[in-house]
Design a protein around this nucleic acid. Structure first.
Lengths: 238, 238
DNA sequence: GTGCACCCTATACGAAAGGTCATGAACCTA
DNA sequence: TAGGTTCATGACCTTTCGTATAGGGTGCAC
């Protein structure tokens, strides 16, 4: 399910370089048997068990941090890491702002995003922002280890599932009921925008937005825009 | 930080039995060295790394499931487990409904809830519904192992932090800035209620609710009620 | 073609929300 | 005692939201 594409010649829009894998460098790194990794996650349980796994199964040297400031200071003090894994939902992250800061601290390389509820689109945004990978927590532990090896070797890694155009529509049962337009409007709702702001963004009339909002509320069984936004968020749509 | 209360004589409302620990049974279980555990979580990475930890460090026998139906069928087929750990956010759970189903399947005993964003109040609700424990993922791996041993021995386990009245206010940095009234209003916002509905619920005038909503928006740096509700949700306040 | 579903626009009106200004009571604290 | 905070209420006004009703426009399938 989650594997790395090994064919640099496969061109899927602009992603051809994103999932390329250089086996030489990967094996060189594995043979050296030494990966310096920084894992930042605010969930103690997740952080400790994952690091234990990476240490025992992957033979990696794993440093830990509980939030973004902690991660930044560790990077600054203990030099650049081969790979920095940042939890997307973590104190100080503020979306992808934290990624930029970590990238700067780590010399612009080797920072990947770890996310529990992967919104699929965020993966692309993370890569555009310079991330070396995007790892959903729905990925298996062994796959994580492989991904970590790739990324430590300097190769960009993304689960192929996330790179498929139709993935976002198919993954969520809720999204299937909604038209493309409705999804765009719902996206606005989930950012707390007003009808007028959504209308400007989509270059539509405000009344049209109202119509879509009403339809959305019916489909999501919400009483108002706020409930619709909360429902969509909870379902992990955005 | 997360330890079990050993004093049955400490009476905190109705919680005195909830955090009691029977060391005899705990050690008996540990000496037997055999715990049959079912871990259900939809995040492969979390599930596999935690189970690996429980196996290697705790010597437990760990079965796995990816969702509630899968967990239920495993319980039905492979007999009752010493302990069933259910992720709170998992397909099929629908809040605490899944807990009831799992309890029924496992003979009414030995089912605990595992939660990433612990809403504190949910812990109490889970225990009232018959759960043998409530484990936030912010808890350390070693603490988890201890908790698992306790619960496998039939003892109820809850982090003492969650049982303290003021915990909800202190745990969240956001909540500290808000008055009790504002938190009540924010709770209404997060359920998508209108000002009028919140006013009825709190037995206040609608204008008063508006005031609080405006204050909330300022404190949460939100442009409107929807953004405020989303921010609160994202922070795990409700 | 004739539906059908989706999309966009328009007008209009009542309800709700958001902002401002002012008042007063209760409480804790300096 | 004075000063701060929190909570509650009042009136006023503007903006936004939600709903209803009535169109016109695509594209697709039977």
């Amino acid at each position: 399910m989650f594997t790395s594409q090994t064919s640099p010649q496969s061109k899927v829009d602009s992603f051809e370089t994103l999932v390329a894998v250089d086996w030489d460098r990967e094996f060189k790194n594995r043979s050296s048997g030494y990966m310096r990794i920084l894992l930042a996650d605010d969930h103690d349980m997740v952080r400790e068990t994952i690091s234990a796994y990476l240490k025992s199964e992957g033979g990696a040297e794993v440093a830990l941090a509980t939030d973004l400031p902690g991660a930044i200071s560790q990077i600054s003090e203990l030099g650049p890491y081969d790979l920095v894994l940042l939890d997307y939902n973590m104190p100080g992250m503020m979306g992808l702002d934290g990624l930029a800061k970590a990238l700067e601290a780590n010399g612009g390389k080797g920072v990947a995003i770890l996310s529990g509820s992967a919104p699929a689109r965020t993966a692309q945004e993370a890569l555009d922002a310079g991330a070396i990978g995007f790892i959903p927590k729905t990925m298996g532990a062994q796959s994580l280890l492989n991904a970590v090896r790739f990324m430590s070797a300097g190769e960009i890694y993304v689960p192929v599932d996330l790179m498929r155009e139709d993935a976002s529509a198919n993954t969520h049962p809720l999204a299937e009921k909604l038209s493309p337009r409705e999804l765009e409007v719902l996206n606005g709702l989930c950012r707390g925008l007003s009808n007028k702001e959504i209308a400007r963004e989509l270059e539509l009339q405000e009344v049209t937005i109202k119509l879509h909002v009403r339809t959305l509320c019916r489909k999501l069984e919400a009483k108002n825009r706020t409930q619709a936004a909360l429902t969509a968020k909870e379902a992990g749509l955005f």
